Simulated assay, not measured.
Amino acid sequence: MQSETVPALDGLTIRAAGMGDLPVLAARDIDRLGQLYDRLERHEADRGELLIALIAGRPVGHIYLWREDAEEPELREHLPAVPLIMNLWVSDDHRRQGIGKELVARAEADLSGAGHREVALGVHPDNTDAIKLYLSLGYEQWGYGQIATCKEPARAGKERFANDICEIYVKRLNG
Rank of each mutant, 00 (worst) to 15 (best):
W89Y: 12
A8T: 09
A8C: 13
A148M: 13
G57T: 00
I63G: 07
L33H: 07
L22F: 11
L121P: 05
R106S: 12
A45F: 06
A107K: 05
R42D: 07
G11R: 05
V123W: 06
I85M: 05
R15G: 01
P7N: 14
D38V: 00
H43L: 03
L12T: 05
V123R: 02
H124L: 08
A114T: 05
Q141F: 15
L50M: 07
R58G: 09
R58F: 00
V90P: 10
P153R: 01
A16E: 13
Y139R: 03
D31S: 11
P125Y: 00
F161I: 12
Q2S: 15
G138Y: 03
N174Q: 14
R160L: 14
H78D: 08
E140H: 13
G98T: 07
L12V: 01
M1G: 12
H43A: 09
I52Y: 06
R47I: 04
G175L: 05
G57N: 06
A81D: 15
T149I: 10
R106G: 10
W142H: 14
L40E: 02
L33A: 11
A156I: 15
R47M: 10
Q2A: 15
L84G: 15
A70S: 12
L75G: 11
A120E: 11
V170W: 09
I63C: 10
V119A: 01
P83V: 04
D69S: 15
G48M: 01
L54N: 04
M1D: 11
A56T: 04
M1Y: 08
H78W: 13
E4N: 15
G100T: 06
R42A: 09
E68H: 00
Y144K: 15
M1W: 03
A56S: 06
P83M: 01
V170R: 14
R117Y: 00
C150Q: 12
N87A: 13
D21G: 08
L103H: 08
G48E: 05
M19F: 11
R32K: 14
V90C: 09
V104A: 09
E77R: 14
V82H: 03
R28W: 00
A56D: 10
I14E: 09
I14K: 04
L111Y: 06
K132F: 08
G48S: 09
I85C: 06
T13Q: 13
A114F: 00
D29K: 10
V24T: 12
Q146R: 13
V82D: 10
G100V: 01
Y134A: 07
Q146G: 03
A154G: 11
D38K: 09
A27Q: 04
A27G: 08
A109Q: 12
Y144V: 10
H94M: 08
S112N: 06
R160F: 06
G18Y: 07
L173E: 02
K171T: 05
V82G: 07
E71H: 13
L50K: 00
R58M: 07
G122A: 09
P83A: 08
M1L: 05
T5P: 11
I99S: 03
L65I: 08
W89P: 00
L111N: 00
A45M: 01
D38R: 04
D110M: 13
G20C: 03
D93F: 05
W142I: 12
I52D: 08
R58I: 06
N174W: 05
G157T: 10
R58W: 08
E72I: 09
